[in-house]
Write a protein that binds this DNA or RNA. Structure first.
Lengths: 221, 221
DNA sequence: CGATTATCGATTGTCGACAATCGCCAAGCA
DNA sequence: TGCTTGGCGATTGTCGACAATCGATAATCG
């Protein structure tokens, strides 16, 4: 039995993360420490530490003596995030393929099953969660603490971009058929195959998002 | 003309980083905020922020309400750091190979030239710097801001491990012959070849360090 | 005597006050 | 007019004080 014992800093960071990821704080929005400290009911130092954490996650940027603001989303942003994700997940997939055992297999299959179930669901939020969860599962199964830590921040950013594009252009991808090759590749036990599969998945996702992004830009122009 | 305008936090973090990397703060050493604030001549909040930064770089760890301490070095630590580096540098090398042009070529060659020059040098510090600089150059040439940011922290950790093993077991590797394949692979323009080359380089480095580490452990036991 | 509880010193967690710095706009000047 | 300068409001940068928490040890109790 354990009770919640997160520091104020962690809770403040989590809250702000949610606000950004769910689009209640839009790209470019300015964040002032005093305002936030009043809204969150905490001190400025606490808010400051939370903001610093979000900065290392690349969700916000700081301009010294000027202020904090939510990062902008751009094609380059998309490209960087997805390529980086490809590199990290590639390593993760390799390791999982090599180290696979009964437990890993079952967890991987469970994550994929959730994905299949979510596909039928009308809830777009659940579809997003299942998708992100699948990717996180693979990385965590790699048993590589540093990788998981690095991936955490990146996956938040992916979630942000994901929800953002979802809200502008509802996704129509087929979760099951898009992810099955990854599962099969990992279960094959061949690290090269596993890495290739997940990397190609990432490249396709990037291409999709870039297309939507361009479309969106054409519209608003 | 620009003057140094780093915040106290940044300067404190830089100083602490040096202390750790150069082995003046050994693994396991405890760091108390008040002591550091007195030594650095700055406030506790400032020290705290600097420590948090070093924590995200994975150089120190925090135990809530207990204190900060310099991370321990272990085989797992070595393995995680080198494999992660392989993934990031692999992406970097790919991108450089694909996007190569006159400027990139010259910078790459310059970094390699420095390596060759350092090899003759007796100064082990310069050899380390040249080696690390070569790797950093490749990553930076990729033109991928997020990658460079991620790599920065990791490369500090590599530098730490590097200097640490160097101090216990002076390196004997042949800088030129070890790195030339990377240069040639990148200049070939083939991303797969480039990635493979730099990844194999990393794997060899890891194997070397692990061997030395095991030897060191046997000695001290 | 063993186990539980109270106490203590040390350290971090949190906070608001004051100083430093920035961007902006108006005033002054050539 | 066009440029520099000075002042102003807003915001962050820095700091030390006080509270909360931890681990270890001493005190207490059955």
């Amino acid at each position: 039995m354990k009770i919640d014992k997160l520091s104020f800093v962690d809770r403040a960071a989590a809250q702000l993360r949610i606000e950004i990821l769910h689009g209640r704080l839009l790209p470019g929005a300015r964040l002032t420490e005093i305002d936030l400290s009043e809204q969150l009911g905490t001190g400025r130092g606490t808010v400051r530490a939370a903001l610093s954490a979000l900065e290392t996650e690349d969700l916000i940027v700081k301009q010294p003596y000027s202020g904090w603001s939510v990062r902008d989303i751009s094609e380059k942003e998309l490209w960087e995030t997805y390529t980086l994700r490809g590199a990290l997940e590639g390593l993760g997939a390799r390791l999982v393929a090599v180290g696979k055992n009964k437990e890993i297999e079952s967890k991987l299959k469970a994550a994929f099953a959730r994905l299949q179930q979510a596909e039928a669901s009308e809830d777009s939020g659940e579809r997003v969660d299942a998708d992100l969860g699948f990717h996180r599962t693979i990385v965590d199964l790699a048993g590589h603490a540093s990788l998981s830590r690095q991936y955490f921040g990146l996956s938040n950013k992916v979630e942000w971009l994901y929800r953002w594009s979802e809200s502008h252009w509802p996704s129509r991808i087929d979760l099951t058929s898009w992810h099955r090759p990854i599962v099969e590749a990992i279960l094959s036990g061949d690290p090269n195959v596993a890495e290739k599969a997940i990397r190609e998945h990432g490249e396709s996702s990037l291409a999709d998002d870039l297309r939507d992004f361009a479309e969106l830009r054409r519209r608003s122009a």
